[in-house]
Nucleic acid binder design. Sequence first.
RNA 1: GGCCCGUUCGUCUAGCGGUUAGGACAUCGCCCUCUCACGGCGAAGAUCAUGGGUUCGAAUCCCGUACGGGCUACCA
Length: 489
Amino acid sequence: MPDPVRVRFAPSPTGALHVGGARTAVYNWAFARRHGGVFVLRIDDTDPGRSTTENTAQILRSLEWLGLDWDEGPEVGGPFGPYFQTQRSGNYATALERMKANGTAYPCFCSMEHLESRRAVARAAGGDPGYDRTCRRLDPADAAQRVEAGEPHVWRLAVPAGRGDIVVRDAVRGETVFPAEAMDDFILVRGDGTPTYNFATVVDDADMQISHIIRGDDHLSNTPRQILVYEALGRPVPLFAHLSMIWGADGKKLSKRHGATSVEAFREEGYLPEALLNYLALLGWSLDGETTIVPAEVLKRQFSLDRISKSPAVFDFEKLDWMNGVYIRDVPPETFAARMVPWLEAAGLANPGDLEARPEWYVALAPLVRERAKRMTDIAPMVAFLFTDHVALEPSATSRVLGREGAGRVLAAAHDALSSLKTWTAATVEETLRTLPESLQTKAKTVFQVARVAVTGSMVSLPLFESIALLGRERTLARLEVARSATTH
RNA sequence: GGCCCGUUCGUCUAGCGGUUAGGACAUCGCCCUCUCACGGCGAAGAUCAUGGGUUCGAAUCCCGUACGGGCUACCA
């Protein structure tokens, strides 16, 4: 690797952080960490109409939530600030001055209307719609005078005559060659004095001494133009890595139609940041083709640009769900208890302070839900029966299980046996209930299923004995009694 | 229109001249088991987009074609 690795993620705050952008951020971050480099966060807020401070704040939150810490940028500052493009206009002006001085930029007085109509004509005729360089042929002194006089103008890049092919060195695609003739003299600075994207981004990347540019595929075609700017500025051209797009299941660019797309939405839907990070990392990159669980720590040590795949990847929500389950199961019970409570509060089950009031109860519950939840939002429905005095018996469970021959006897016997239990734990509850099948002359499964419906209200639940232990003696006995009276046999 | 990029099981991918084309998710069986889930074992699933080359030998290298995508803006 060339000297100091400095990479940047430069979102434009025109919306929330999208998973595509998040993946780009992950790769930049991982690459910086892997090489002991610097991860810069820059806000490309040059679109005044659509950029908002709310969006910026949310993007920062999403990045933090994912665990992507930046070394330079908003909130932390750094030696190359400010890190908002709208605050760097001086840099663009300086860069433009340099280009004016060395003749790589020239003023253009063509009106937008004129350009548009010319473009339309050229396109209709099947010709080149690029700028025809009318103003490049103006006498320099003349042009300077018109600028001085205040005539409306933009500044264009003068593509060097006779410039050979422009080759983009890309870590993902190898060397891509663009014929220089295909480049027109694009605009650097608009009529209102603001820089265009291709100009601002290069000035910033050069000023911030960015060594590697890892970004979306959609910028590949713009890269030769940007290389021309680097050259005009006399700055070294960084190495590139262009990432292919993320698609929805229909092969179209991922959008809201496909479900959650913002990092914020994934958070709300119960995904763990470590799982989303892992999933995103693997969407277009692989460690070795075998390993699927790649936590941040491994990513920081093993990420490499040469294992990024070239083709677009379809976002697979089912695989994310599986991976989220893997990470959920990996959280230690104590930690899991703390992480699950906010979701219970949101569902109206737990209240602030509950965890502190009986931590051991929540820690005992944690392993039970942990291995059954794919998302944190799965938890509340699973445990709701533990947070109410009167459980609602599901009609189908009632008719199929409690309506069964002998159900009443089972419930009565269970009530009997449990009411005399001295120590109320999952182990003692199990021991007690396991004696029933024999004395009742029924199968163990039948006994447990009847008890399950009575206690949890459902045919599918957390493990019975543990559930009863967590529910407590009073509520359990009450439910067995209620269910027995609802029994027809 | 021009210029670029991409194409291996349904999906994410491994592969970088010689493999029975490997793994993961999803699917389907079986096992474990108080239900569900977890876990274990196994099955099915890819004429490597396609047509030509190069080579003793091609998923791997070259060219064309098809399909998809990007750029070609005083958007980013």
